[in-house]
């Protein structure tokens, strides 16, 4: 166990996943309440184009992911109609365009650098190969985002319950929604770097869905969701580390363990509530 904790890649992975899990756990609660799971997923997929771009141009992956995540928010603002009914299709269109961009950039990666494993690294995550300074930056970013989220938590909760009530109370819905989307983009970007762009959604929605089943009040739900996300990530890393010898010559992906733990929590929360 000590050997496990002293390994540099493991330390980075633990830090990075903690940052992603804590931020996504809190964001996920609002994402589920606001019905924006698809938008969150689309933002993660769009940010993957940044991951591919950073490989192509040799810049920091954090920067690449973030750049495209924020660009995704701009795209969503342009595409999304005012009425809630059309939000689903707008998110889908953005996702298609974003993945199209990823396809192109990955294509250039393969043709210019001949790097074959890039699609896998970008889409399914490569947290064990993250440089340690990136992990530190991610922690700072997650802390900052959590602080902003705490700042807007109350108006956001009110607006998520009923927009009209919030408007009567003087909440500026549009600005609030935009800030939340930006936070969401940053959150899924961190998750995309941890478990990969496609599985970022699991880290965003899984803990929150389980938390919603158990907690009564909003603060409890947020804290529980954050804790569950962290437990799944760290548990997944430990399991992935332990699994090296299970089948000789074969590796078990850490993303699988994280998602499996999250789904386990979700199912257990359902049983617990019924009991």
């Amino acid at each position: 166990m000590l050997e496990f904790l002293q390994s540099g890649p493991v330390q980075s992975a633990l830090l990075l996943s903690a940052a992603a899990a804590l931020l996504c756990g809190a964001l996920g609660l609002f994402t589920v309440l606001r019905g924006q799971a698809f938008a969150g997923h689309a933002l993660a997929d769009v940010s993957s184009a940044g991951g591919a771009g950073s490989l192509l141009f040799g810049i920091s992956p954090l920067l690449g992911f973030l750049l495209f995540g924020v660009a995704g928010v701009a795209g969503l603002e342009i595409l999304q109609p005012r009425r809630a009914a059309g939000r689903d299709e707008a998110a889908g269109i953005l996702l298609g365009a974003g993945l199209g961009g990823t396809a192109l950039l990955l294509h250039f990666c393969v043709t210019t650098h001949g790097a074959a494993g890039t699609a896998q690294a970008v889409m399914f995550g490569a947290m064990f190969s993250t440089p340690s300074d990136t992990a530190l930056w991610s922690c700072l970013l997650a802390g900052g985002c959590l602080a902003v989220l705490a700042l807007i938590a109350r108006p956001l909760l009110l607006a998520s319950l009923d927009e009209e009530l919030a408007r009567v109370a003087g909440v500026r819905l549009r600005a609030l929604g935009l800030v939340f989307l930006l936070l969401l983009a940053l959150g899924v970007t961190l998750a995309a770097m941890t478990v990969g762009a496609i599985l970022a959604t699991a880290l965003l929605i899984g803990p929150a869905a389980a938390g919603l089943r158990l907690a009564r009040g909003p603060l409890a739900a947020a804290l529980l969701s954050m804790a569950l996300g962290l437990a799944a990530c760290w548990g997944g890393i430990v399991l992935a580390y332990e699994s090296y010898g299970w089948i000789p010559g074969r590796t078990w992906p850490v993303s699988f363990f994280i998602v499996a733990l999250l789904l386990l929590f979700y199912a257990a929360a359902g049983l617990r509530r019924r009991a």
Binding site: A37, P253, V259
Partner: peptide, 12 residues
């Protein structure tokens, strides 16, 4: 949320 969880399950 259900769709997101299914997506994660399939991919994982």
């Amino acid at each position: 949320a259900a769709t997101a969880l299914l997506l994660a399950l399939l991919l994982a």
